[in-house]
Design a protein around this nucleic acid. Structure first.
Lengths: 128, 128
DNA sequence: GCAATATTTAAGTTACAACTAAAATGTAGG
DNA sequence: CCTACATTTTAGTTGTAACTTAAATATTGC
């Protein structure tokens, strides 16, 4: 329900989304993409295309000395699915909460006291 | 159609998704969230909650000396919308291509002819 | 083989995100 | 006012992502 990961990271970058948009409808060479983006180096475009390919968002095909890239829209599936499930779960909970609210009127039940827990010195951790 | 940005960046982080999941159904204090995540400091949790709030994904409410966070699921809307429009645009284009292909007469329309593929995939070095 | 073209890879720089420890802020209650 | 508690903010560190330039690789045509 809350899976996915590198795919979202790939779409989260504005630059990569821009590149993805360029190869969305038509197959384009890396040079074509670069020509459409005057602000960045050829190398940068190549690296981002590689990143998109690693995320499964584009396919690459060699033709002569050019390499043709094309978006693979169905790769968006998992991301869509994740967002949809989050959304649906939210709707479900809201509905449930509304029903409960309708059937109950009165003072709010107090939550029980939470026992404190002794602190240990925080160990050094690496991040994800 | 290809808008959005900081919202996707907010959901793209696994840590933030984990935190978001914790405050998804119930309102929880920053301490509650921290207690559920033994690997990170209280400060780190606080910073991530702030980031989520900045993206509009959570609301915060002060009660006594605690601050209660809760997810705001409808904030996912724009992200869903973006993915959907990308997806739909893809479907639309595929359908259009199929129709054009169907109206064409003559020898059997086979799959678009491929040129030769002289090269294997480029050698890549793992570079974590 | 050599030059021209198209692209990738390598190496290095910079910016930033995520984290930690410690100090600061705000709040409740004796 | 003082202390304990809950959380935020600050300052500093580190890993990584995104980029650059320069060199390397692959392909075509002479």
């Amino acid at each position: 329900m809350f899976l996915d990961g590198p795919l979202l990271a790939a779409i989260a970058s504005p630059r990569r989304r821009e590149i993805l948009r360029l190869v969305w409808s038509d197959e384009r060479s890396a040079g074509d993409v670069h020509r459409a983006l005057p602000d960045v180096t050829f190398a940068a475009v190549s690296l981002q295309l590689r990143a998109l390919a690693a995320a499964g968002l584009v396919t690459v095909r060699a033709e002569g000395r050019r390499r043709l890239y094309r978006a693979r829209p169905d790769a968006l599936g998992p991301a869509r699915q994740m967002l949809e499930s989050m959304w649906n779960d939210a709707l479900w909970r809201l509905k449930l909460a509304a029903e409960l609210e309708a059937t109950r009127r009165g003072p709010r039940p107090r939550s029980p006291h939470r026992r404190r827990r002794p602190r240990t010195a925080p160990p050094r951790k690496a991040r994800t």
